[in-house]
Design a binder for these strands. Sequence first.
DNA 1: GGGATTGTAAACAATG
DNA 2: ACATTGTTTACAATCC
Length: 678
Amino acid sequence: MFQCVFSSSVLQPHSTSCLFKHLFYHSATPASQKQPEPIYSKKTEIQRQTVRAHSVKLFIFSALQVARQLLLQQQQQQQVSGLKSPKRNDKQPALQVPVSVAMMTPQVITPQQMQQILQQQVLSPQQLQVLLQQQQALMLQQQQLQEFYKKQQEQLQLQLLQQQHAGKQPKEQQQVATQQLAFQQQLLQMQQLQQQHLLSLQRQGLLTIQPGQPALPLQPLAQGMIPTELQQLWKEVTSAHSAEETTGSNHSSLDLTTTCVSSSAPSKTSLIMNPHASTNGQLSVHTPKRESLSHEEHPHSHPLYGHGVCKWPGCEAVCEDFQSFLKHLNSEHALDDRSTAQCRVQMQVVQQLELQLAKDKERLQAMMTHLHVKSTEPKAAPQPLNLVSSVTLSKSASEASPQSLPHTPTTPTAPITPVTQGPSVITTTSMHTVGPIRRRYSDKYNVPISSDIAQNQEFYKNAEVRPPFTYASLIRQAILESPEKQLTLNEIYNWFTRMFAYFRRNAATWKNAVRHNLSLHKCFVRVENVKGAVWTVDEVEFQKRRPQKISGNPSLIKNMQSSHAYCTPLNAALQASMAENSIPLYTTASMGNPTLGNLASAIREELNGAMEHTNSNESDSSPGRSPMQAVHPVHVKEEPLDPEEAEGPLSLVTTANHSPDFDHDRDYEDEPVNEDME
DNA sequence: GGGATTGTAAACAATG
DNA sequence: ACATTGTTTACAATCC
């Protein structure tokens, strides 16, 4: 009922521009409003914008992650296939435009950016944890790639020098240049071939390319290519490219590589380009990092093999064990036209994804920049990331790393490895500019608080992220969690500090808010006890609260609900991600990718929340419904609001508490609360 | 624009 | 005297 995720409307090619319009609208809105006290107004302005843009970011971020993950996966597959997408840069030692380090700069999101997103509660904690892991994996791989390219570059330079020193004959140099030119042409030809093959695949229905999207600048080529010609090109290119694939450990299973190299004499080009080429045609470029990527440590792990299934694009043959997989690989995916074609497709996929990744990252950066700059100076024209001015709005830097926070791996405040990064828009300090967010959208969307807290308890415990629920909801939850369904004020306090890292600061503030809420809301009933007074929840009163509807474009929501039957989350995410850059959707080539499934489910999960919100609004927030119906909605939701049903996961919460520090009456007094003094 | 909801701040009283 | 608990008011922000 709420499987739907991305709506097709969200995914229209023009969606991104719409999003930006949306964004501009939002950033323009505050300017037209009244301007209260300078500092406060600026702060709240930031908050307003960030909250409003959360869905946009979620959208982009998810799409970006999909692309990123795809890229990762595809690259792995390519490495194993012994193929490499033609990269001209590393084949031009003579024309030495240094292999752009910028090009190799990890396309990763900085820890600061990540945390910024976290602070804005854009993504669910679970998803964020997944993303963090993916991010780290990607960073690692990119580092390795970068290193590899540097090494290769150095080697090529060295080589060139040697040639110049030893030879010094202009003729020879000329020859080198000529050969390089020839090689480049081969590469070009190769690319054209790939494109052409894509076309033919598309015709055969092997590929699905979105209509109206000329994905590739297809060259007018002859339609038919002779297989032998293909093979010849293939050999030439592979032998040249084998320099990048000297992972000796996996030769046994890499029939493509080995066959290519052994069946064809190493091309002159490659030999000249690398005098260290070994006799068997393998080039002895040292790629220590690369080798660490290989599967020496796990001889039975193979990027093309997983869960007993061959992961060759479009294959999915079941292989009981690794040996049978190798057999299968050698028999079914040997060097033939089909395999080469599939590899080319894979190359294209990776290329396009790389492109897409870069563009998406740029987009994300622009979005963040946009929000940040605008929020700092609403009327100022977009300017280079003005960090200094924005930091002045943020709270003191001391707040950035509260010692009370254990920096567990899941803690987003813990910076990931200090990799070289592009200019980071979001600073650590600026993260804390995100203060009181008036609307807790989980609350607003009626996300079942119990399930959210239960599922993300570790996250909330460790990450100083404000839980997306109102005080009233949290208090209620605390009370309902208790065995007696009643708590003293102090016990409520303790629950807050135990469950949420966020509430380990500014105790005076939130405790006041808790007391205020207890008094204010009729749903909280004070009961005199022998030991004193305890607080209980009047569930009927609680459900009487005026429901908050989902905000945003109503048509969009409508579409989300109506269109989910027609598109899978994955398609949606990919389409969204690729639409603007006319990236075709390689269903055949990529759909077998299990990573996609994971991501898709992650996205689905994330967006199910939104769907759930709307559904729950329909189900238990209808105006004419009686409170009792509201308490026991005829649900469509999987997570009950019913406190009794909510007991399960919650009891888990209390037993699985691993932070004894926060367990018993530890008072998180206004530690350095002055951090907030302004 | 106005009412409802929520968050924050603060004043104040009762109580231990 | 002081801290805690609880109530209340005020105000801003946000949403409907």
